[in-house]
Amino acid sequence: MTESTSPGASSLPRGRLLYRGAEADVIQGDWQGLPAVYKVRKPLRYRLPELDEEIRRQRTLHEAEMIHQAKKAGVAAPFVYDVDVPTSTLVMEYIAGPRVKDLIGSERAAARAIFREFGKNVARLHAAGIMHGDLTTANVVRRDGGLVFIDFGLSVRTGRLEDHAVDLRLIKETLVGAHPEVAEAAMGALGRGYASVAGQPRTRAVLRQLVSIERRGRYARVT
């Protein structure tokens, strides 16, 4: 991939802080007149600088590459406008719309519809050998009836069954942890959506692997 180091990007973006995530500040601004977000991986002072710099640099470069790969796989993701390595900043298209996290209420039918679509997209990523790595309900936005995946900071190129199951495990963990009322219905729909792209045998294998991962958890009793 190519790295752009246009002089404009090095200066700190001006705009509204949209979201302070665990590893980055997401600032809403504009880029050459287009609505944009600046994802700035600021130094984390609690982490040792040599460890911190390497993690930030790698994740920034890698994220731009993975967003590109996701689009090739047919999964909607933001346009990347610019990558600024010295400040670990990614400049991307602003995706207007609610996050899946905020869309899920206690309505099972609505959750099923969203997660069927969610499952299809995850299967497309996996079929292209991409593990998203951060599939929480905060990282998927609904726009024009479809889903846009917005955070590829922890994505990995991998076709391993285990890694694909880890992706599903995080979705399940997030659903059970943060949306317990609809978790079961949503996971069922996710599985059906996934199977409609990946086919039954592969889906069964990934779900079996998911159970095997859960069994490795401390004190786990998987039913």
Binding site: Y19, R20, G21, A22, E23, L44, Y46, R47, L48, L51, K101, T136, A138, T174, A178
Partner: peptide, 17 residues
């Protein structure tokens, strides 16, 4: 440094989430 930064990062993720 490595192990504690890892658990701090995931705790931060839960806090932000």
């Amino acid at each position: 440094e490595t192990a504690f930064a890892m658990v701090t990062e995931v705790t931060e993720r839960a806090l932000a989430f």
